[in-house]
Design a protein around this nucleic acid. Structure first.
Length: 295
DNA sequence: CCGGACTCCTGGTTGC
DNA sequence: TGCAACCAGGAGTCCG
């Protein structure tokens, strides 16, 4: 569910409230949310209590809060995860993990990790040095994030490498956009929105896209992500909220995602939804022509 | 290398 | 109103 804009809204919302806060207690209400933590819930809680949270960071859809000593609390929201900041004592339905924080300025704060489907997770992970060409001195990511490519809003995103890899990829462009090892942060919504913007069909072979069109696609990706970010993310049900429990507004700006049957905002043809990769793909059959079948 | 199938899950919504 | 089927913003792994 939450893609780059939603995760960034959460990260940015956490930053002023949790940075510098000390973890005073940890309650694991559902161990399944620790699936990616290497150890039992007691270990998770023990290692967090007393630690001070540093500035939250993000790459793609992964977010982490460094806790000193080369470690970080890594959070992935999966399909339905939320991180909610509440006054002490306030509960949220479907809370799986609860952290009580003590902040020097904000006082007591409760952080509820809420996740309906439990595809999301929290884990303590080690930070390792980033080794790609853009890496600045001392830049680190959790080991669980090391295989994730930089996202297109990262100032060190390597465009040339991205285009070169696209040119060599013999798979459909949507599959490529969803590959977090190639470009991170894009999920089903923003893939469909970006492809519509670039007038590309989701099955167009990545390697057949010319460099100028690939550039235009990347520009669309960035434009869509930035607009969504500015509008607080996409919320079409209760499954996405910012840290205060409020919804984003990008739902109203969606051109094709979830718009099947409605007119394409560009040409008026009804938007089509097809099954692809076990999920919906939305596109305009006139603006986004499918590739010619290879004989 | 590539694509498809399958896994992890719950609960709100839809339809009979 | 009841209840089952359906649906969902992710991602890892395995198999052919």
């Amino acid at each position: 569910m939450p893609e780059l804009p939603e995760v960034e809204v959460v990260r940015a919302g956490l930053e002023p409230i949790v940075t510098g806060a000390v973890i005073s207690s940890v309650t694991v209400l559902d161990e399944r949310s620790l699936r990616r933590h290497d150890g039992p819930s007691e270990d998770f809680a023990h290692r967090l209590v007393g630690r001070t949270l540093e500035v939250p960071e993000r790459r793609g859809k992964f977010m982490w809060l460094p806790i000193g000593e080369g470690e970080a609390l890594v959070t992935h929201l999966g399909m339905s995860g939320q991180v909610l900041l509440r006054p002490p004592g306030v509960d949220d339905k479907l809370t799986r993990i609860r952290l009580e924080l003590q902040h020097p300025v904000h006082g007591q704060v409760r952080m509820n990790f809420v996740d309906q489907r439990i595809f999301g997770s929290m884990a303590i992970d080690e930070l390792v040095a980033v080794t790609d060409s853009g890496a600045g001195a001392g830049e680190t990511v959790p080991t669980a994030v090391a295989h994730i490519a930089r996202d297109p809003l990262d100032p060190f995103f390597d465009e040339r490498q991205f285009f070169d890899r696209l040119a060599r990829r013999n798979s459909g462009i949507k599959r490529a956009l969803l590959d977090q090892g190639l470009i991170s942060g894009i999920g089903n919504i923003y893939a469909d929105e970006s492809l519509w913007g670039a007038r590309l069909h989701y099955e167009q072979l990545a390697s057949t896209i010319t460099r100028p069109r690939a550039r235009a696609l990347l520009a669309e990706v960035r434009s869509v992500l930035l607009q969504a970010l500015a509008e607080g993310g996409t919320s079409f049900d209760e499954q996405y909220k910012n840290v205060n429990g409020n919804s984003g507004y990008f739902e109203h700006s969606l051109k094709v995602y979830g718009q099947q049957g409605k007119p394409c905002p560009r040409c008026g043809r009804p938007v089509v939804r097809e099954q692809f990769m076990n999920r919906g793909s939305h596109f305009c059959p006139r603006c986004q022509r499918p590739p010619k079948p290879t004989v």
